[in-house]
């Protein structure tokens, strides 16, 4: 990958107790691009994703070796502020998980935690984030309604807006569309396309067509190893590795 990398992993190994989930993973995530991670269930794609904002720290008995850098700083160095790391590296999950609060409060929550207090400033952040997440027009007249009243697709875009509100550099998306219908999925995919202008997006998906549609780069993982990583068009038109070929043509997985 010739573009400048925002995240780099070097020889990363990860164990859940005795079970090794990642094996010597070295990958460079290019800045302001969409990188998709594909592979069969249990291959380590979500585990790798969670390494980038140290979400694996929250799981007991996890051991990691190797180096992960964000903006050339080791995310595991003693000086790393995990809260700041997770502000820089936001995350959107498989199932939309809005807080049981109003639409406005869902988006304002993050900036408030990070010390933004002024009403005008918060209003501005909320509007901008909702606009960036392509949901503003649908919710602008009911910002004080409960977020739980939104449709699944709207909730997911609200969660993206909530992530954007703290101005991250990287957005991790773990199967962001798997609980959504095709129309809501298309909206999220369009949104991903727009987001890469300002952010770096890493998406884990089991849907290969989706990976092909939305990403610039694709990494194929298998049994904890990164088998192949390259430009999406190359991976889907003529992968170099036979394993990749067999997986994307549905011969296993």
């Amino acid at each position: 990958m010739s573009e400048s990398a925002i995240i780099t992993t070097n020889n990363v190994n990860l164990w859940y107790k005795e079970k090794q989930a990642l094996e010597s993973v070295s990958i460079k995530i290019p800045k302001n691009k969409v990188t998709a991670l594909i592979g069969p269930s249990g291959c380590g794609k979500s585990t790798l994703l969670r390494c980038f904002n140290r979400l694996n720290d929250l799981i007991d008995h996890v051991r990691i070796t190797g180096e992960i850098t964000l903006d050339e700083e080791n995310v595991h160095s003693p000086g790393t502020d995990v809260v700041m790391l997770r502000k820089k590296v936001g995350m959107v999950f498989q199932k939309p998980n809005p807080f049981p609060k109003s639409i406005y409060e869902n988006v304002a929550y993050g900036p408030r935690v990070h010390g933004v207090k002024g009403k005008t400033e918060l209003d501005q952040i909320v509007e901008q984030s909702l606009q960036h997440a392509a949901i503003w027009d649908e919710v602008k007249d009911r910002l004080n309604d409960s977020a739980l009243g939104l449709s699944g697709g709207q909730q997911q875009r609200l969660c993206i807006a909530r992530t954007l509100a703290v101005e991250p550099e990287v957005i991790l998306m773990d199967e962001p569309c798997s609980a959504l219908d095709p129309i809501a999925t298309a909206k999220i995919e369009n949104l991903i396309e727009m987001l890469k202008k300002d952010y770096t997006v890493i998406i884990v998906t089991h849907n290969m067509q989706q990976a092909a549609r939305v990403s610039d780069y694709t990494g194929f993982m298998y049994l904890g190893r990164l088998i192949e990583c390259g430009k999406t068009i190359q991976i889907f038109e003529h992968p170099k590795e036979e394993l990749t070929e067999n997986y994307i043509t549905g011969r296993f997985g």
Binding site: M208, A212, F236, E237, H238, I248, T249, G250
Partner: peptide, 9 residues
Amino acid sequence: YQPMAKDMR
């Protein structure tokens, strides 16, 4: 089927 890789080729 939206074929890929060799299948597409």
